[in-house]
């Protein structure tokens, strides 16, 4: 049985906001199935007593003083914008409230 179904890939593509055609979904499901088969062994390697490592170096408490730093001008900020209006980023209509 495949580790990942086409429907599951469609759901993930939705979460990741990537439009995919039926063909692409099929191809992706097949490839991911192979990859997941190869990586699944991580589940068997470490026991419950092994702590997880999220950061490679053991640094803690890195902060900066609460002092303003020069940022970008509105012009710089908007320079790469696909669309702008009234010094704001113009974006297509938003369907749902956050």
């Amino acid at each position: 049985m495949p580790a990942i179904s086409r429907d599951e890939v469609a759901h993930l593509a939705g979460l990741a906001r990537i439009e995919m055609s039926p063909d692409e979904l099929d191809r992706m499901a097949g490839q991911l199935d192979v990859i997941l088969g190869a990586v699944a062994q991580v589940r068997e390697v470490a026991g419950d007593d092994v702590p997880a490592t999220s950061h490679p170096m053991p640094l803690v408490n890195v902060t900066r003083p609460d002092v303003p730093r020069p940022g970008l001008s509105a012009e710089q900020a908007l320079a790469g914008a696909p669309a702008q209006q009234e010094q704001r980023f113009r974006v297509p209509r938003i369907l749902e409230e956050d």
Partner: peptide, 11 residues
């Protein structure tokens, strides 16, 4: 997956 992989990192 992610959790186990982070443990492998420790190992």
């Amino acid at each position: 997956y992610y959790g186990s992989a982070q443990k492998v990192r420790t190992l």
